[in-house]
């Protein structure tokens, strides 16, 4: 799931300055699960911006809409239709959703309401953890299902750095993390030990091919069977 965080009202107000009719477009899947861009959050943001504009004595018309996924053409058409007649669109989708909308609204500016953060898991209510960087070369099969790329601060592939203390990564000494960041490599070792597969760590992993992670330019997945 894609996890995001709302931009500050101050930044949003500055971005939207000068527009008189604004459509807020929510996205009701990933960012709804991470409680920042679904219908409920779209309604909250619309009400908060209305208060902000009224406090600034600005007459701005705000309208809300929401679709299941702004990154899918079939769902997006509803937002495109709703946006006609508006000066600007404020999208509460992830960056992919915002850009999908931009590609379909040639003359209406589209602004992001969120900072897209990461691919994550809802660990508990109100807590989302980064568990995947979309590196294009998944290592989970070798590491007991715990990702060293997203969960180890140094992205190490061949064991811990030695800086961990009481099971926690040394980055916890730099600032307070809530919840604290565990040492991913300690977790990997314990997990493989529990599975009786610790010998997986005896072979040295070669360097990652980071070109698959985006260092080689924008990535594409093309499936001929799906294009029919």
């Amino acid at each position: 799931m894609i996890v995001g965080q709302r931009k500050s009202l101050q930044e949003l107000q500055a971005m939207l300055s000068g527009y008189k009719k604004i459509l807020l477009a929510g996205c009701d899947t990933c960012v709804a699960e991470s409680a920042c861009g679904g219908r409920r959050e779209t309604a909250e943001l619309a009400a908060a911006l209305k208060l902000a504009f009224q406090m600034a004595n600005q007459d701005v018309e705000l309208q809300e809409t929401s679709v299941d996924r702004q990154c899918i053409q079939e769902f997006l058409v509803d937002v495109v239709a709703a946006a006609q007649g508006y000066d600007a669109v404020l999208s509460l989708a992830c960056g992919a959703g915002v850009q999908a909308l931009v590609a379909r609204l040639a003359t209406i500016p589209v602004f992001p309401a969120l900072n897209t953060m990461f691919l994550g898991e809802t660990a508990e209510r109100g807590v989302w953890l980064e568990n995947c960087r979309g590196c294009g070369d998944c290592q989970l099969g070798y590491t007991g299902g715990i990702c060293p790329i997203s969960r180890c601060a140094k992205r190490l592939l061949n064991g811990p750095c030695g800086g961990a203390s009481n099971g926690l990564c040394e980055i916890n000494m730099a600032r307070v993390y809530d919840p604290p960041v565990p040492c991913a490599w300690e977790q990997i070792c314990h997990r493989l030990q529990d599975l009786g597969e610790l010998e997986r760590l005896y072979s040295v992993k070669p360097s990652m091919d980071w070109s698959k992670a985006g260092a080689g330019g924008p990535r594409r997945v093309v499936r001929p069977d799906q294009r029919l």
């Binding site: 409920r40 309604a43 909250e44 208060l51």
Partner: peptide, 11 residues
């Protein structure tokens, strides 16, 4: 009662 209800009423 949702948070947005409260904000809307204030607005």
């Amino acid at each position: 009662v949702e948070s947005f209800h409260l904000l809307r009423i204030l607005a």
